[in-house]
Amino acid sequence: MKLLAGINHVAVLTPDLDRLVRFYRRVFEARVEWDLQEENVRLALINVGPNAILSAYELASVDMPATRPRFDRGRHDHLGYNAASEEAFRELRSRLRAIGATDGVVTDVGPARLFCFTDPDGWEGEVLWMKPGVPWATHKRPAHWEIVDLD
Rank of each mutant, 00 (worst) to 15 (best):
L3D: 03
A5S: 14
N8K: 15
H9V: 03
T14C: 02
D18A: 14
L20W: 07
V21H: 03
F23Q: 04
E29G: 10
R31P: 04
V32M: 03
V32E: 10
L36Q: 13
E38H: 10
E39W: 09
N40P: 01
V41L: 13
A44C: 11
P50T: 08
N51Q: 13
A52M: 12
A52S: 13
I53P: 05
A60T: 13
V62S: 07
V62F: 14
V62G: 02
M64H: 08
M64S: 09
P65Q: 09
T67R: 15
T67P: 14
R68E: 05
R68N: 06
D72P: 03
D72N: 14
H76T: 12
D77G: 01
D77M: 01
Y81R: 08
Y81D: 00
A83C: 07
S85H: 05
E86G: 08
E86I: 05
E87Y: 03
A88I: 03
A88H: 15
F89W: 02
L92P: 00
R93Y: 02
S94Q: 14
S94C: 04
R95P: 00
A98Q: 09
T102F: 10
T102Y: 07
T102L: 06
V105T: 15
T107Q: 11
V109H: 15
G110S: 09
G110W: 00
L114P: 02
T118H: 11
T118F: 09
P120N: 07
E124W: 02
E126G: 00
L128I: 05
K131I: 04
P132V: 01
V134D: 14
P135F: 09
R141G: 12
H144M: 03
E146L: 09
I147C: 06
V148S: 10
V148H: 06
L150V: 12
